[in-house]
Design a protein around this nucleic acid. Sequence first.
DNA 1: TCAGTAATGTTATAATATATCATTACTGGA
DNA 2: TCCAGTAATGATATATTATAACATTACTGA
Lengths: 153, 153
Amino acid sequence: MEKAQAICIENNTRFTHLRKRVLELIWSSHKPVLAYDLLETLRNEKMNAQPPTVYRTLDFLLKHRLIHKIQSLKAYTGCDFPDQRHISQFLICDQCHQVVELDDPLIKQVISRQARKAGLEIIHQTVEILGLCPNCQTNRPQGGPVNAIRNTR
Amino acid sequence: MEKAQAICIENNTRFTHLRKRVLELIWSSHKPVLAYDLLETLRNEKMNAQPPTVYRTLDFLLKHRLIHKIQSLKAYTGCDFPDQRHISQFLICDQCHQVVELDDPLIKQVISRQARKAGLEIIHQTVEILGLCPNCQTNRPQGGPVNAIRNTR
DNA sequence: TCAGTAATGTTATAATATATCATTACTGGA
DNA sequence: TCCAGTAATGATATATTATAACATTACTGA
């Protein structure tokens, strides 16, 4: 939180109650959070929120690299390394939806190299790896092998 | 198209008019297509389509690996190598939205290795690299550098 | 203090996606 | 050929995710 505060000061912007609260909510969840779940929580706290309230706040937090969006889950998760610029990769458990953030230089480098070889000037890398986490591998549901192709929600 | 046909026969399922037409539409577009754009096209062709018509067909084509979904664009694109099982990476131009499909074994291997190192049993890799394609690099819009963080739509 | 801007409130609506049940069309066996 | 069973599609409704546009409030710095 102090880091978030510091980043806001540095960027000459305000770390308001709303922004702080949303960041807390995202951080306190052990899984990526959906925008409308945040909305509901804020409403329960009598914060009189509407969808734009949430999406604006999420945009702010994304812009200042305090959170990430997991595209394949349409969900938002805290950034583990807010103070250093980095490119993340996400390991997503298909069963419990827990997410691990990697900051793997090797993956980053290989992707960068191959993309540039193809002539692309890179803006952003989205790397989301869906699978079963160690815990869910042992507690499997019915036992059948998981189909590799599916919509991830 | 013959390959699509063959794949359906092999999987003991039907390559109906609807499925064929949707696949044609996706293939004939040089960019990833949105579901509701497909819907509109089908309706213009007097095919009397509703959202489930399109999404069911997309699910079918995804399941049989005839198309891919680009998560960060919420759009669908033809698969360049439908007959061989593979893991794709996508190079997406932020400006013209053109997409190139890579099937890069090195990226695949590095990601697999690092993910397994973290204990994940992999189901699927989503790798989407946003940038500027060679053509759009020369025809830049106003000249300013592009912000690295944004919502990709 | 007050003007300018940043942030939030408010209303409405767009865009994406799925659930459910009804109907039609194909397939394979009697 | 006909019929039963299943695959595919039709149809209606609704859920979920996200943004546009304008009004109001709250902070900041001269």
